[in-house]
Design a protein around this nucleic acid. Sequence first.
RNA 1: GGUCGGUUCGUCUAGAGGCCUAGGACACCGCUCUUUCAAGGCGGAAACACGGGUUCGAAUCCCGUACCGACUACCA
Length: 496
Amino acid sequence: MTVRVRFAPSPTGYLHIGSARTALFNFLYARSKGGKFLLRIEDTDLERSTEESVKSILEGLEWLGLTPDEEIVFQSRNKEKHVAAAFRLLEEGKAYRDFTPKGDATSSKNIKELIVERAREQKDLRSNPYRDLPKEESDRRAASGEPFAIRLKVPHEGKTSFEDAVYGLQEREFSDIEDLVLLRSDGHPLYNLAVVCDDIEMGITDVIRGQDHLTNTHKQILIYEALGVKPPRFAHLPLILAPGGKKLSKRYHGEIVSLTTYRDAGFLPEAFRNFLALLGWSPKNNKEIMSMEELIENFSLEGIHKNNAIFNFDSNNPKRWTDDKAIWMNAEYIRTMPLEKLLPYVKEELKKAKLWREEYETEERNWFERTVNTIRERFFTLKDFSTQGRAYFSEDYDFDEKAVEKNLKKHPELQTLMPELASRLEKLEEFTHEHIEQAIRNFAEEKQISFGVIMNAARTLLTGTAVGPSMLAVFELLGKERSVMRLKSQIPWNQN
RNA sequence: GGUCGGUUCGUCUAGAGGCCUAGGACACCGCUCUUUCAAGGCGGAAACACGGGUUCGAAUCCCGUACCGACUACCA
């Protein structure tokens, strides 16, 4: 049987990185098995589901390169089928009507308290008075318009068990499972029923999802059994936790957990996908940098870990705002990926920053490629091309205060020396690094100032920063005219 | 409270009884190259939660304790 897996997010916010990883693993598994990767939007919670969220999920998946193989399934459109299944189980005596008035649990705190309180009572989960109500009476009360929920009739004795591909054999006594509600008294099907029905209908063979569903699985298996369908294989994934070891949540951690944050911060999808793949999974060969093809080739459920992973971030630290390794990996991709693959991303970034010029793809193409290739060495994100790299693409760039202090103002004589050097360089016939270097060395010797001081001053004048590629390369890239002009600039000297 | 799960350097992880005086990666520290560095090269510090077993031998198997997490709802 061909493998069919699905990613089933509920559209109640942006796509978060834990979900993104679940999607990735499903995709990798499908591809590695020659199967299909499907997408189902679980939008049955009408109050919380939004159109916007669906859009954000789709965008996120597309960014990571996880395109579904078949049409997207919207769970809400299958509502009638879920309802029908509940009634079928009722007919067959595998479920019953519960006429208990609906309790109200409003805030989440109340819910938690309610659960614990209820649990302390340690009552028999089979003690519902309507469980064994004679069919005639149940039918009669229903016909008279009395509201009811439909609950699954879980047997008194026995246990469910399944072999989880990650966590191994899982067993649970029936006595620990309540007669779960399949259909709410307002006629809406519940999650566990909907999931099972849809997975059956979609022909899902392997359910790969977060570990938070591990205990739910027993309930779902009970539904499969009642429905007379063989359950799929299950593989539960360890969770991705926040630095404190708490569950990563949209509510508490905000945008940092949103996939789009990374896209907007200048991450390459290749890099972020690679990073995500290594959270909770590792290949046998200890390899870390992997293309999508390599991920697919190496992926296997056996490589998934059981323990949760912590995703580091610190919103108060601009340099460490997200996980170190993710940043490193992005930088690694930026400096080592084939240039022609990087170029389109840089183009897009420059466009966003209004720094793009069509000439970069025509007469200045060669220059553009050389420039990108040179400056990418020290960049971490695509954003760096429009910020740190701005001076290469625009005459309007900022001077870093510290750089000005350290490389210029510390040596006041440079204020007159640099324009002088500029005039000297202006006379060069060939503006190539050999000639530039020679000219600067001569100048430095003549003026009794160190070569390094000149170079650093030039770096700050030409690029506004204190760091960057070899200065001679910078001179060459900027060309004689721009270099000379910038060396003469008095702007940084008058700054502050 | 109950059920289930987890616990190897700060973090991501390798490890399936002897190959482990525990390996790699990120971050960190030092040295080095150099015109700068957040780049490159070289090196360093850094972990088997704890306690009992089993075994000739345990990070690896068993039991207990601790801690962490998930689930437990007419949410998904």
